[in-house]
């Protein structure tokens, strides 16, 4: 039988991110915690399915949950095995999971095939980001609702105002990242102040991601 409980919690050096169907977030969090994750949190998200017909029918968004778990890379195999066995995550439509090495991780690879992009924009502009991805042929972004911390309104009127933001997360091959950032810069004027930010991370391992090879099979 597969060993589930990891006895000791080691210092986390990897962030494991999972995107699963709404309702499965707690299950994934508890599974990862049982297998030795140092800490795990979960938030509501929306998956984006590209396609003009689905967009017209207002069906282009699917309800998802995003799980962030901080783990030590020694238990990474154990966590992926658990996701594969319990959540069947490698099967299409069951979700995706990937790992981002944290700062100071000695086993972090120099170059990775996949990269993750996190784009933070004002509420309402998330769709524009997805349109840019669509033009570039990138698919499968995840959108989250967030709040900004820097508030000019609070300084002006002394009122607690939290500006609403949208966060778009996308995993894509590393060779497309430069092109994506250039497009975001030109199409959404991200070099100008208050137009949002985009940052990219290295992804060391993934499971359940859609690939063109899978599409063909």
């Amino acid at each position: 039988m597969d060993k589930e409980i990891t006895e000791t919690l080691k210092t986390p050096n990897t962030l494991m991110v999972g995107v699963v169907t709404r309702g499965q977030g707690s299950r994934m969090m508890n599974l990862l915690r049982r297998r030795g994750a140092h800490y795990a949190v979960c938030t509501f998200a929306e998956g984006t399915v590209p396609g003009h017909i689905l967009k017209m029918l207002q069906l282009a968004k699917t309800k998802k949950e995003l799980v962030l778990a901080f783990i030590n890379d020694e238990i990474e195999d154990n966590c992926y095995r658990g996701l594969s066995m319990d959540l069947k995550i490698e099967q299409p439509g069951h979700g995706v999971a990937f790992s981002i090495p944290l700062c100071g991780n000695p086993t972090a690879p120099e170059k990775t095939e996949l990269s993750g992009a996190l784009i933070i924009v004002d509420k309402g502009k998330g769709e524009d980001v997805l349109d840019v991805f669509d033009d570039l042929g990138l698919r499968g972004g995840t959108m989250l609702s967030a709040y900004g911390g820097a508030s000019i309104a609070k300084i002006l009127f002394d009122m607690p105002v939290q500006p609403e933001k949208e966060v778009v997360f996308l995993v894509t091959p590393s060779e497309k990242i430069k092109e994506m950032l250039t497009s975001l810069e030109t199409e959404l004027q991200m070099s100008e102040p208050n137009q949002g930010i985009a940052v990219t991370f290295a992804i060391s391992r993934s499971i359940g991601l859609f690939t063109e090879a899978k599409k063909g099979s």
């Binding site: 969090m29 949190v41 933070i120 900004g148 939290q162």
Partner: peptide, 25 residues
């Protein structure tokens, strides 16, 4: 946190509302 971080030189922050998971709920 944002207030303290800004005092220490951070230029902004983004906040996500999340919920925490337990090993043995």
């Amino acid at each position: 946190v944002v207030q303290l971080a800004t005092q220490a030189g951070a230029s902004g922050a983004t906040i996500l509302h999340t919920r925490e998971g337990f090993a043995e709920p």
